[in-house]
Amino acid sequence: MDPIKPAFDPVTLAIPFFVLAVVLEIALARLKLAHANYETRDTLASLTMGLGSNVAGLLTGGAAFAASLWVYQHRLFDIPMTAIWAWAAVFLLEDLTYYGFHRLSHERRFWWAAHINHHSSQHYNLSTALRQTWTGGLAGTWALWLPLAFLGFPPAMIAIQKGISLVYQFWIHTEAIGRMPRWFEAVFNTPSHHRVHHARNPRYLDRNYAGILIVWDKLFGTFQPELDEEKCRYGIVRNLGDFNILRVAFHEWAGMARDMARDPRHALGYIFGPPGWSPDGSRDTSAKLRAQWEAGRAAETPAE
């Protein structure tokens, strides 16, 4: 196997499956055989974002590949692509890297600006999985995977595993599947776990960052199970009022620019603070919304 050029791209191979699965989910919903909410303009926005993401990837992927190749040339070890243990190791380390990337993309505004569009749909269906970023490459999150190349994992190996992770995450964007068997829910990311991640309920905000393995969230304190008594409400804290594709793609970048122009003294806070950060604390962050919710719940609990 060529350690530089992947022998195949899991995402490209899976595209026909993605399309067929979306069509099947729509058909089953129309026949009332599965629970799935689709809205035409919302679905078109998701598909357009997915197409644009592929184009953006072509434009920025060269820099990421060149950086990965340069780091690999200075690697610590020679890790063979033919070894089973190497694939097991890259699976675990890539999945942990994805957890870190995903958490960063929610907890710091600069990277949230690139990721927010994936959460901007108020529906949760398979087309939502295709609502991908146009600006992730420019935000430089690809650099988080460079340490894997430095350790000695071939760039082709890393690329294949990243593709496998993205393909896996497609099927968990659905309400048509309730809960998987208990043992599966305990170890893997599932539709139930990922519904929580896409919910804007204060209880559910910024939880379940997993790619494939939910164990990272359990280890690092970001796990929240889906509760039957609290239905997920999807979207972002302040939902967009239209389906303008440019607004979907760039509205948070524009908002960040406006904040910095209005108050340049606090530019670093607006860029690298949590989404919703403000110098006087007047805006809502996830932590603030959760604290308000917890205070309200405590007030409703009768004293013993």
Rank of each mutant, 00 (worst) to 15 (best):
H194N: 10
V196S: 05
H198P: 06
R200Q: 13
R200P: 10
N201A: 07
N201C: 10
R203I: 14
R203L: 12
R203S: 09
Y204T: 06
Y204W: 07
L205S: 03
R207A: 13
R207C: 11
R207P: 02
N208Y: 02
N208D: 04
N208I: 03
N208T: 05
A210L: 01
A210W: 00
A210F: 02
A210R: 00
G211V: 03
I212M: 10
I212C: 08
L213D: 06
L213R: 01
W216T: 03
D217S: 07
K218C: 02
K218W: 04
K218M: 08
K218T: 03
L219P: 07
L219E: 06
L219H: 02
L219G: 05
L219N: 03
F220L: 11
F220N: 04
F220D: 05
G221W: 01
G221K: 02
G221D: 07
T222V: 04
F223T: 03
F223V: 02
P225M: 00
E226K: 02
E226T: 03
L227Q: 15
L227N: 08
D228F: 12
D228Y: 08
E230W: 04
E230P: 05
K231L: 15
K231H: 12
C232N: 06
C232P: 14
C232H: 06
R233D: 15
R233E: 09
Y234D: 05
Y234F: 11
I236M: 11
V237P: 03
V237N: 15
R238I: 09
N239H: 08
L240W: 02
L240A: 08
L240V: 09
G241V: 09
G241C: 07
D242S: 15
D242H: 10
I245R: 01
R247Q: 09
V248K: 09
A249F: 06
A249H: 11
A249S: 13
A249D: 09
F250K: 10
F250Y: 11
H251T: 06
E252D: 14
E252S: 11
W253R: 13
W253C: 12
W253N: 08
A254T: 12
G255N: 13
G255D: 14
M256R: 11
A257H: 08
R258V: 12
D259I: 04
D259G: 07
A261G: 14
D263Q: 14
D263R: 08
P264L: 00
P264C: 01
P264K: 01
R265P: 09
H266S: 14
H266T: 12
H266L: 04
A267E: 05
A267M: 10
G269A: 01
Y270F: 14
I271Q: 08
F272D: 10
F272C: 06
G273W: 00
P274Y: 00
P274L: 00
P274E: 12
P275V: 00
P275K: 00
G276D: 04
W277I: 01
W277Q: 07
W277Y: 15
S278V: 06
S278E: 12
S278I: 05
P279S: 04
P279T: 03
G281S: 06
G281F: 04
G281D: 06
S282K: 15
S282Y: 07
R283S: 07
D284G: 07
D284M: 14
D284E: 14
T285C: 13
T285Q: 05
S286D: 09
S286A: 15
A287K: 14
A287H: 14
A287F: 10
A287C: 15
K288V: 11
L289Q: 12
R290Y: 12
R290G: 06
A291S: 14
A291D: 13
Q292C: 12
